[in-house]
Simulated assay, not measured.
Amino acid sequence: MARETPPRIFSPTRRKAVRRRMLELQQAPDAPRYLLDDMVEDMLERLAFLRHQPQKALLIGDVGGALKKTLEAQGVEVTAAEPGAGFEEEAPYPFSGFDLVASLGTLDTVNDLPGALIHLRTALCAGGLLIASFPAAGSLPVLRTVMLAADEDRPAARIHPLVDVRAGAQLLQRAGFADPVADGRHLEVAFRSLPREIGDLRAQGHSNVLADPGPSLGKAALMRAAAAFEAAAVEGRTIERFEILTLSGWRR
């Protein structure tokens, strides 16, 4: 039976362009990095807890190389891959045999997530571990409300659909991982303005890459968005919430 073609929710071209822009913006010394930093810290804690000392690791989306530097200091041979530089997560990888594959903040915008997880498992050697973290369902509740206010009675798709913990666990099982674990945590960030939040998302590679991104917001819509954002503020700051889903599993 022919494999069913996944729906085209995200634009690979837009996705690559957003990642490339992120790589440029991350060159600034004050670039926001809190999402990636949280994922890196969490992955290192998991490796320590599991007492898994890899010898050969594949790191996908390790912008800035923080995880790479830490693992190399422990004697790990690291291969880095970046979707913005042309690495294709929905195709068979050109390398394999890793006892650790870590994916940071990229799997939320692939069209074929089950297929991408299968490629990740294939890249592992027997006994190898996958840890993948990315934004999950429940993220950006303020921004979602703000965009609805901006669009009024004609809401457009502007924010990505996201995977929740339950679906993540099912996807790991479907991809053939042993001892699959899916869990979530949240991160809250305070913003003084809507442009600042949009700028942070852009600088961290989490802006709109939908295949149908919706029409541009006009001046009146932008004013409604700004007003809705300010209405959500407490003492001059609006608290936004990011849900982070982490998937882990072994190849037996």
Rank of each mutant, 00 (worst) to 15 (best):
E45Q: 14
V101T: 13
E45A: 15
F10P: 05
A220P: 07
D30S: 10
A228D: 04
V110D: 07
L143D: 00
G218H: 03
G128F: 03
I9C: 13
S139V: 07
V76Y: 11
D108K: 04
T5C: 13
L210S: 05
P6K: 04
L187S: 11
V40H: 03
L35W: 10
P161K: 00
P92Y: 06
R174V: 08
L124G: 04
W250S: 09
P29Y: 08
V142D: 02
K68T: 15
L171N: 00
L171Y: 09
L187H: 10
L187F: 12
A2F: 14
A132P: 10
D37G: 04
L143E: 02
D42G: 13
A228L: 01
H52G: 14
Q55T: 11
G128H: 02
P135V: 06
S96K: 09
R121N: 05
D30I: 01
A85N: 11
N111C: 09
L35C: 08
L36A: 14
M43P: 06
D38H: 14
P213Y: 04
P195V: 13
L58K: 01
G214Q: 06
S133Y: 03
D164G: 13
E243D: 15
A66D: 12
A48F: 05
D99Y: 09
A190L: 05
E89I: 06
A232H: 03
P114V: 09
F98N: 01
L50P: 06
R252K: 13
L124R: 00
V76T: 15
S103V: 14
L58F: 10
D200V: 12
E77L: 12
V78T: 10
G168V: 01
L194P: 09
L140E: 06
A2H: 12
V189W: 09
